[in-house]
Simulated assay, not measured.
Amino acid sequence: MIVELPDTNTTAISKELIKVRDSGGAFTSGRVLTLLVCTNEGEPTEAAIEAANEASREHPCRVIVVARADRSGPSRLDAEIRVGGDAGASEVVVLHLFGDLVDHGKSVVIPFMLPDTPVVTWWPGHAPANPAADPIGQLGKRRITDSTKATDVAATLAQSLATYAPGDSDIAWSRITVWRALLTSALDQPPHSPITEVEVQGPADTAAVELLAGWLHSALGVPVTRSVGSFQVTASRDSGPLVLCVGMGNQAIISIPGKPDGKVALPDRELRSCLAEELRRLDPDETYHLALQGISGLTRAEDKIHS
């Protein structure tokens, strides 16, 4: 069910929420958090709502969408309340801000936040330069950005490191959770000879690959080279290299000297799965911070050629 409230105010929206709840359309007692979704004009707001709805089946929440629209006209607030089949296991309040109201999103969302529940802020599109200092970001115990579609990945990740605050995270980081688990498991298997260096190969300007390489550099404390090509991680050691790559049918292939190749089905992670993973933990992700720090210490393949 979708209730539309054009040219409205926060008081009218609050009254309608109570009416919907009293009629049995929504129940706030089971909500475990408030998810604030911030989008700008032209960004895929509906896709973000769909992902939040799916993630809410694991984490029942109230989703408040701050959709910044045209700021050139008069100030206006249009709203939608979505419950039932249009809201997954959540209840969704969509706030379309126009005019000067675009710059006052924090004041607009506060009346709809659930009391005594943690708050997570998510920017599925363009994020502020400093999420922790952003007015809506300040409301969140956890702040999730998404660098997967950044036009300048290097600058975006460098900015994320410069402004990092406990609670910051990135959808690009959760996209490689399975890769990190596979590598950790493979490195725990014999032979246990030390890793001497690592090469991480993958498409250029890909945030997930950059974070994976940075994580390996920080975690292993060895030289890590970032090169461009199809995805492959090669960990060199005296007993022979450990190689993780992608084979036919989107399978992960793990090669260890003296053992048959291991194959693991590896479907692409959808946005809803990554978001659900991010919502599972509300404490600071220190490993993500280490991955950001490790990026600056990477050796670029082109640098080795010219040296």
Rank of each mutant, 00 (worst) to 15 (best):
I2V: 14
E4A: 14
L5T: 08
S14Q: 11
K15Y: 12
L17A: 08
L17G: 12
L17Y: 07
V20T: 15
V20D: 08
R21M: 13
R21T: 15
R21H: 13
D22L: 13
G30W: 07
G30C: 09
T34L: 02
T34F: 06
L35A: 07
L35Y: 06
L36S: 04
E43S: 00
P44S: 00
A48T: 01
A48V: 00
E54L: 12
E54Q: 10
A55C: 13
R57Y: 08
H59P: 10
C61F: 03
R68H: 13
A69Q: 15
R71N: 14
S72I: 11
G73R: 14
P74S: 14
P74F: 13
I81R: 07
I81S: 06
G84W: 08
D86K: 15
A89I: 03
V94Y: 05
L95T: 00
H96N: 12
L97R: 03
D100A: 15
V102A: 11
V102K: 03
D103F: 11
S107A: 15
V109K: 02
L114N: 07
D116K: 14
D116Y: 07
A127R: 09
P131W: 08
P131F: 10
A133G: 06
A133F: 04
D134L: 07
P135T: 06
P135D: 08
G137M: 07
Q138T: 15
G140E: 01
R143K: 03
I144G: 03
T145P: 01
S147T: 10
S147P: 01
T148F: 13
A150Y: 06
V153Y: 00
A155H: 11
T156P: 00
L161G: 00
A162D: 10
T163C: 05
Y164T: 07
Y164A: 11
A172P: 03
A172V: 05
W173D: 02
V178E: 14
W179H: 06
R180H: 07
A181R: 15
L182F: 10
L182I: 11
L182Y: 08
L183V: 09
L183M: 14
T184F: 10
Q189Y: 01
H192V: 12
P194C: 04
I195W: 06
E197Q: 13
A204N: 05
A207Y: 09
S218R: 10
P223R: 00
T225I: 12
S227N: 03
V228Q: 05
G229M: 03
F231H: 04
A235H: 03
S239K: 04
G240F: 05
L242Y: 03
L244M: 08
C245Q: 09
C245W: 08
G249Q: 02
I254E: 04
P257H: 05
K259C: 09
A265F: 12
L266C: 07
E270H: 13
S273F: 11
L275C: 06
R280I: 00
R281L: 09
T287F: 00
H289E: 12
L290Y: 10
G294F: 04
I295R: 10
I295S: 02
S296T: 10
S296D: 12
T299P: 00
A301D: 06
E302I: 09
D303C: 00
I305Q: 14
